[in-house]
């Protein structure tokens, strides 16, 4: 794989993670009360962790993420996909946003992996997709245990 292709792939990933940080930061700035703010801030920090991760990949020039995708609990497909105004966000809605977001990112990386001609590039996107699936699983598990307790 050519060095610039690798760099381009990571730069793309970095851009996506930074966009995610910006998304949570935007919601956070418009949050109405402390509980929303705290939760959004926590999720934003997680995305910032991702940014840092991609940066370190750039610096080291190799990818050492696990290739094992997390189990799909199936919530992402079942949840309705509307986005309510930020001032009324409750925990269910914030979690739902996060799940949907992780799913979209995972799907995108998955598609990029499928489209990549270079096997190494396919590997990189595949691993990024797996990383997003682990994230989605984390939020889904949280949804199961905290929101859908009686379901």
């Amino acid at each position: 794989m050519k060095h610039d292709e690798f760099a381009a792939a990571l730069a793309f990933a970095l851009e996506r993670e930074q966009a995610a940080v910006a998304f949570y930061a935007d919601l956070e700035s418009r949050a109405a009360f402390a509980a929303q703010k705290a939760t959004l801030a926590e999720f934003r920090l997680m995305e910032e962790g991702h940014v840092a991760l991609v940066r370190s990949l750039q610096a080291r020039g190799e990818v050492n993420l696990s290739a094992t995708a997390a189990v799909d609990l199936g919530l992402a497909r079942q949840l309705a996909a509307d986005e309510p105004p930020p001032a009324e966000l409750d925990f269910q809605q914030i979690l739902k946003l996060a799940i949907k977001k992780e799913e979209r990112s995972g799907d995108l990386y998955g598609q990029l992996a499928a489209a990549a001609l270079d096997p190494e590039l396919r590997e990189i996107f595949g691993r990024l997709a797996a990383e997003e699936s682990r994230h989605r699983h984390y939020f889904e598990a949280l949804y199961e245990s905290e929101v859908a307790r009686d379901n």
């Binding site: 009360f33 402390a34 509980a35 929101v147």
Partner: peptide, 21 residues
Amino acid sequence: IGQGPDLAFVAESDGIEIRRF
């Protein structure tokens, strides 16, 4: 399927740490 809290009455300035609602 479940219920959640209504924490709209707690402002950031109240100084209560909240995690995940």
